[in-house]
Nucleic acid binder design. Sequence first.
DNA 1: ACAAAAGTGTTATCAGTACACCCATGC
DNA 2: GCATGGGTGTACTGATAACACTTTTGT
Lengths: 245, 245
Amino acid sequence: MESEKILNISVDCVVFGYDTNTKSLNVLLIKRYLASKTTNEVLVDDFVLTGYHVYKTETLDDTATRVLKELTGLTGQYKKQFKAFGDPDRLLHPKDIIWIENAEFNLRTTTIAYYFLLNTEDVDLETNKNDARWFPVNNLPELGFDHEQIILEAYEDLKVKCLSEPIIFELLPDKFTINEVQDVYQSILGIEIDNRNFRRKLINKKYIIALDEKQVGVSKKPAQLYMFSREVYDKVFQKNYLISI
Amino acid sequence: MESEKILNISVDCVVFGYDTNTKSLNVLLIKRYLASKTTNEVLVDDFVLTGYHVYKTETLDDTATRVLKELTGLTGQYKKQFKAFGDPDRLLHPKDIIWIENAEFNLRTTTIAYYFLLNTEDVDLETNKNDARWFPVNNLPELGFDHEQIILEAYEDLKVKCLSEPIIFELLPDKFTINEVQDVYQSILGIEIDNRNFRRKLINKKYIIALDEKQVGVSKKPAQLYMFSREVYDKVFQKNYLISI
DNA sequence: ACAAAAGTGTTATCAGTACACCCATGC
DNA sequence: GCATGGGTGTACTGATAACACTTTTGT
């Protein structure tokens, strides 16, 4: 039995997926297409974030988790509520109004935006019914509603947060190489990092654990694999109160 | 003419005020009191944050600004939307249900929480109609709804943010001494800071500008006054991409 | 003259930065 | 044997941290 929807509150999810091969930070988007039944004119043809109404009996976090699960089948991924968007005109572009005519939600809907972090390989888009596709965050297609703004603000939050919290590992497979970590930082932040300094820094962390394994199936020298230990991190981590203004 | 309210969406404001004299970070709270008309039994007697419904024609930021203005008369203070709270049971404690019976809002209301930063001297509580009072954030009274949680999460956000953004000055008068800045940091973070190191660090910042003024009316050596220049800060500031995980 | 807080310098340590070449592997 | 990316060491520089006494003012 389905709980009742709250018609003016939704959750939208910015699903960030890092592609280890192309070294690209991507966003998962859904196709939005509508043509006139009479003239065949294309009325709406763009992409949107995945989202849904909040049900009356669930928390906002529950909604986000549910939306991600329906889209990707995944649960337990890193998730962060980062901002609410509630401008009165956020859904009032002409094509959005046309689109909403066919949907049962309010023109004045406030959305609570979340972002998720995962690796693109965790998601199987073939079996996906929603026509979802990955787009590089630096090369987004035309987007509906205010979703471009939502994505950009999520990206800003991610850039800041990845400097002070160990969330970078959420974007990689469980076993990764040091250079892969460096690549993720470089992609996200758009900077170049010195490999020797980065290696030293990372390998010295107690929560970056060298495994008894190397890469397999690569046509070059196979790299050492590491894992991130959340447990050790929580134990070792201590706040520093460095004021850097 | 008043715009229509959205009955299930509100904005709640955590108004942080720093008291330079007591060196205490305070929160502005409103008395909530209700006694039974028949038995005189006290039904509700606690404090809550100030908040209000979002009007259909305003943005969430507008609502927050309006709420602060009605409470304090102030505009243009530092404001930050930091989280949405929407648990289905967030207003369902027995005393909250009693309270809501007399108000026209939904039992399933989602609130967008903001915090404001100012100096307690900016606010005149005498002329205030709401029976508002300052409470130290480390010594809060009994609170209604989920407002204790909201305050604590705002405080956490503030603690993190004051380390990397120059928002500390929002809590002080326009002209301040170096030791006052140190006191604010110590109050907020609950730490001790070495005065000599702190002075040197702050005075070396180009956007901390020494004025041709000293304190007046103090019964001790009057201290040099400084101001913070947002303009210089914006010009001088450059992102650093220091990864500190 | 006394109380109270303002203001001041030096040294040691640590972390970050810059920089170029050899090595191991798969093909 | 060669192409590819993996992996390594050192010296410099700048920021932070630890630490105690003198100065200025008002009363």
